[in-house]
């Protein structure tokens, strides 16, 4: 029934597909971080309609399934003349979806900065850009690194959804192996183990970083 030989023989193929999975996670995370930061800034804007629009958009994206959003980007965008490759559509969907989570993370980081820091910045006649880049962000980011790390791991575990829009990553590869040999058990077990072997140590590392940052900053958020 279970064949060890087969389970080992397909490993190289799956590990090759793992590279695509990791690439998608990294690019998706960068998009999520940039968009998340953008939402956070928009939510702090003095312009009320912008705040309401961004809040509503974020709430909507957060409440609807990533899979449907991926389908939307992959199938609906071409109707408006924007055709994306599975990889591009995938990382865009992944990034957009998780940007709505990361905006909360950025918000907690920025809210934790004492008011005096802002006041000191303006008292010293720093420009708004300088206050953000030189005073606020350098203090807001380090305490939220563990939370960002957790979301990175969450996004990594969500990448199999990209197989639904025909990106050939690990799950898609396992499916192809399965349908060619009818050995689904080995293929999917291997994929599960690869996910576990990567994500479990990663979560332990995030735990260690969290402890270090707690020591250094006195409290965590």
């Amino acid at each position: 029934m279970w064949s060890w030989d087969f389970a080992f023989s397909i490993l190289p193929q799956l590990l090759q597909a793992m590279v695509v999975t990791i690439e998608a996670t990294i690019v998706g995370f960068v998009i999520a971080a940039l968009l998340g930061l953008l939402w956070t800034l928009c939510k702090r804007s003095p312009f009320t309609p912008l705040r309401i629009a961004v809040n509503a958009f974020v709430e909507f994206i957060k409440s609807t399934p990533l899979l449907v959003q991926l389908y939307f980007i992959f199938f609906v965008f071409p109707a408006f003349g924007v055709s994306l490759s599975p990889f591009l559509a995938g990382v865009l969907g992944l990034g957009l979806h998780y940007s709505t989570y990361l905006t909360e993370v950025f918000r907690t980081g920025i809210d934790a900065i004492p008011k005096g820091q802002w006041e000191a910045g303006s008292a010293l006649n720093f420009s708004r850009v300088k206050i953000w880049t030189q005073i606020i962000m350098p203090q807001a980011i380090p305490p939220i690194i563990p939370m960002l790390g957790n979301y990175f791991i969450v996004m990594f575990k969500e990448t199999p959804l990209l197989s639904a829009i025909s990106l050939v990553e690990m799950v898609q590869t396992a499916q192809m192996i399965g349908s060619a040999s009818f050995r689904y058990v080995e293929a999917f077990t291997d994929v599960g183990i690869i996910f576990l072997v990567l994500s479990y140590p990663a979560s332990l590392i995030v735990g260690v970083i969290n402890k270090r940052i707690k020591q250094r900053f006195g409290q965590s958020i």
């Binding site: 575990k157 050995r183 999917f188 599960g192 996910f195 994500s199």
Partner: peptide
């Protein structure tokens, strides 16, 4: 938590019948 939800669903769907 460590393996992905979709992998678990596929495992249950494709692998159990073979077993």
């Amino acid at each position: 938590r460590g393996t992905s939800l979709l992998v678990q669903l596929f495992w249950l769907y494709f692998s159990l019948p073979i077993l």
